[in-house]
């Protein structure tokens, strides 16, 4: 499964980078979304993929019985998702404002304006 995930993440990264290399700011935004998904999945995969063993401890037990997925990686990804959303929200509003003022999303044309 790791192999498949690795291919998937590679594709996500490739798509994200390609989109971020475009001149349109909208596409840059799309690239950003793809990139944050790719990064989250990367951490998730590298921490180890385990089926059906969430890091939840049964009632009354002291610790998990018989293996568990890595809770630390999950906590990291959870915050990363929310932060990614924050960055995206900021970028969306920025794009919105920039477009409102400059009337273009071409970053070549934007560069000249202050």
């Amino acid at each position: 499964m790791t192999t498949m995930m690795a291919i998937l993440i590679g594709c996500l990264y490739a798509a994200a980078i390609y989109m971020m290399l475009r001149r349109s700011m909208v596409k840059l935004l799309i690239g950003l979304i793809l990139l944050s998904n790719a990064a989250n999945l990367l951490i998730f995969t590298v921490a180890g993929l385990e089926r059906g063993v969430p890091p939840l401890i049964a009632k009354g037990a002291e610790t998990v019985v018989g293996g568990s997925a890595d809770p630390l990686a999950q906590a990291l990804i959870l915050t990363a998702i929310v932060i990614g959303f924050g960055v995206l929200a900021f970028a969306v509003v920025l794009l919105h404002r920039a477009y409102e003022v400059i009337r273009t999303d071409d970053m070549n044309e934007m560069k000249g304006t202050d």
Partner: peptide
Amino acid sequence: GVIGTVLTVIFTLVEA
């Protein structure tokens, strides 16, 4: 904090 942030963004966009 999460409610506040998400709604600030959405409300601001609507207000704009």
